[in-house]
């Protein structure tokens, strides 16, 4: 029964793995709920500030901020939001594929690229891939704070201010539902006028073509601060959404791992039972044969 014993230990070890994956599934499920709450809590702010910035972009400001001017594109920056840990299915792989696709399109046009990695997996990826990584932040945990990102975002914004970057994108996973997350590449800078268009249906009053705000204290100071805040909040929203995606993807990945382990155990159990039955049959026939010979 040597084969039988081997199969039994194999079943035992798969059962242990199954216990771990099902525990991870349950942990991810409860973390996902919290992450989703956090995501929806930060959404109103991100949406409102996007509306306001959309209005500014549509207005006819006396002062054109650098962030609103479309420049000739020589160098593009990508802020790539990834997870810190693995075991979440193809979440990061799909995201990096989307980044590479965009990156290749730019490179074909002779445009150079800078990357900013948020999350350990992204820094690891760019270390291997060899892109020019200008800033990286990792270890933001499950409840990222806006302060965690300010440093990395500032590096990119400073590069933009200095004219080293002509365009800035943020790449993160979008939470469609628990089963589906899809990578999204969004343009942050320069601001495009259609940015606030997604939910401005109640705003479409006939408005004179060249209106402008009153600014307090003055347009430059105000826009400087507001737009930096805007970029930070958009990146933050991306990071929070990505955390929810991570937990959902992990939950799904662990669920299928648990299911697969169950299938494997069933199959092995069948093989084991057959082997045991065969051994018993053989023993009986041996005994019967022995008795007949006597």
């Amino acid at each position: 029964m040597a084969a039988g014993k081997e199969i039994r230990t194999q079943i035992g070890s798969i059962k242990n793995t199954q216990k771990i994956t099902s525990a991870m599934e349950m942990v991810a499920a409860s973390k996902m709920r919290k992450a989703q709450e956090r995501m929806s809590a930060s959404q109103p702010y991100a949406r409102q500030i996007r509306n306001v910035v959309g209005h500014i972009a549509n207005a006819n400001p006396e002062y054109r901020h650098d962030y609103m001017v479309d420049r000739e594109v020589k160098r593009v920056g990508f802020i790539v939001v990834s997870t810190d840990r693995g075991l979440c299915g193809g979440l990061n792989a799909n995201l990096f594929k989307a980044v590479l696709k965009d990156a290749k399109a730019w490179q074909d046009k002779g445009v150079e690229l800078d990357f900013c990695a948020l999350g350990a997996k992204a820094s690891g990826f760019f270390r291997k891939y060899g892109g020019r990584l200008v800033s990286a932040t990792s270890g933001m945990g499950e409840a990222p704070e806006i302060e965690d990102l300010i440093g990395s975002v500032k590096v990119m914004l400073e590069a933009y201010d200095a004219g080293q970057l002509d365009r800035l994108y943020v790449v993160h996973n979008q939470f469609v539902n628990t089963m589906t997350q899809k990578p999204a590449v969004r343009q942050l800078l320069p601001l495009s006028p259609d940015m606030g268009a997604d939910n401005s249906q109640d705003e479409e009053h006939s408005r004179p073509a060249n209106w402008d705000y009153l600014y307090e204290p003055d347009a430059k100071v105000l826009l400087d601060r507001l737009l930096v805040r805007f970029i930070e909040s958009q990146v933050y929203q991306g990071v929070v959404e990505n955390v929810a995606c991570e937990q959902a993807a992990r939950m799904i990945a662990m669920k299928s791992a648990t299911d697969n382990a169950g299938d494997l155990i069933d199959e092995l159990q069948l093989v084991y039972n057959k082997a045991r039955q065969a051994a018993i049959t053989q023993e009986i026939s041996e005994i019967v044969g022995g008795a007949a010979a006597v």
Partner: peptide, 11 residues
């Protein structure tokens, strides 16, 4: 701010 205020942006 009352209804019909002119567009304003302030810190």
């Amino acid at each position: 701010i009352l209804p019909g205020h002119t567009p304003l942006l302030s810190e």
